[in-house]
Design a protein around this nucleic acid. Structure first.
Lengths: 158, 158
DNA sequence: ATGCCTCTTGTTATACTATAACGACGCCGG
DNA sequence: CCGGCGTCGTTATAGTATAACAAGAGGCAT
C-alpha cells in the first residue's frame, strides 16, 4: 500500500481507484456519471485535499455547471459511497486510498502542502462509547502536522 | 470524572472549570476579562457544543458587541488556552472538561442533542506518523453518533 | 406511444462560518 | 505625559454549504 508521502507510481493509484469505483457502482446499481467520474479524477490527480470550490473551478473550466451545488453533490456522492473522504480539519476533500473496502479512515494531514495519507486504524473510542451507552456512527480521526517533504522548510507551528 | 451523558452535579462542573481557568490565567499572566469569562460560562451552561453565532447571540443580549469577531476572539482565547475545544465535525465549541491539565482531547459527539463527552485517549496515529516521518502537531478525534438519551427516539443514521 | 416516475444536472438565492483591517479606549511602565 | 500593548468594538468581505425549483433523459407500465 503506497503512501501519499512516499514516492510511488501514481498512475497505478489513479487507475485502480477508478476501477474500484466502477466496480462498486456496478455492484450497487449506482451510476458513475461523467460529472462524478471527472470529480473523482480531479481528486485523484494528487493526494492533496481540495476545497469544494477548487473542485468546482476545475469542473466549470471543463464545461460542467458553475454553481456550488454541482460540486457539492458530486463530492457528496463520492463521500457517501466511500470513494472520497472529507477532511474536517480543512473543510476539504480527498480521494479514498482504499476504495471498495469498507473502513473507518484516519488521516495524516500536512498543514503546509495539504497532502493527506490515509491510515487504517481501529475505532479508538469504542470502549469509551460502550461504557457510556453511546452509539458511534462515524469517527473522525485526523492528525495535523508536517509531512516529511514540508518538515524541513515549513514555518513553525500555528 | 463525571461524564456529559451521566447525571451529575453540574454546578460543581461549572465552578471547578471557572476556578481552573482563573488559576491558569493567573499563572500565565493572561487576563480572564468579563467577555472571556462570560463566554466560558455560556459554554459551561451545558455540555453541548455551541456554534460561534449562538454564543454571539447570547453575548449580544448581555450587552457585549454584536459582531462575529467578538465571539470568535473570545472563543479563540478559550481554545488557545485549553479552556474550550472546537468540535470540527460540528464547527462548534464546547467547554473543556479537564481545564488546566494539558491533554489531547477526544470526543463523543451526539448528532441529535449536540452534547459532547470528552475522553482522554492516547494519540492514535503516533506509530504511523513515526513510520512516515510525519510530525504531528495536533490531533482531532471525534466519534459522532447518538448518546444514551437520544438513542431511543432519534431518527435513523444519516 | 404516452404518461409517469425517478434520477441527474443545472439554476437562483440564501444561510452559515470565519477573518482581515481599522479605530478607540484603558492600562502601565518610562 | 506619552508610547506601547492588549482588548473590544466596528465595517467589510471571504469562504463554506444547502434549500428550492426547473429542465431533460431514461425506464417501464399501460
Amino acid at each position: 500500500m503506497p503512501h501519499a508521502f512516499d514516492r510511488h507510481d501514481h498512475g497505478t493509484c489513479i487507475a485502480s481507484a477508478l476501477r474500484a469505483a466502477e466496480e462498486t457502482c456496478d455492484g450497487r446499481g449506482l451510476s458513475l456519471t461523467p460529472l462524478r467520474r471527472r470529480t473523482l479524477e480531479i481528486l485523484l490527480e494528487s493526494h492533496a485535499a481540495l476545497g469544494a470550490y477548487d473542485v468546482l473551478a476545475r469542473l466549470e473550466a471543463e464545461g460542467f455547471g458553475s454553481k456550488p451545488p454541482v460540486a457539492y453533490r458530486a463530492l457528496g456522492f463520492l463521500v457517501d459511497n466511500g470513494f472520497a473522504h472529507r477532511i474536517e480539519g480543512l473543510s476539504a476533500f480527498v480521494a479514498c486510498a482504499r476504495p471498495g473496502a469498507p473502513h473507518a479512515p484516519s488521516f495524516l494531514v500536512c498543514r503546509s502542502c495539504r497532502r493527506v495519507a490515509e491510515e487504517a486504524i481501529e475505532a479508538p473510542l469504542a470502549p469509551e462509547a460502550e461504557a457510556e451507552g453511546f452509539a458511534i456512527e462515524r469517527t473522525v480521526v485526523e492528525a495535523q502536522g508536517l509531512c516529511p517533504a514540508c518538515r524541513p522548510h515549513a514555518k513553525g507551528a500555528a
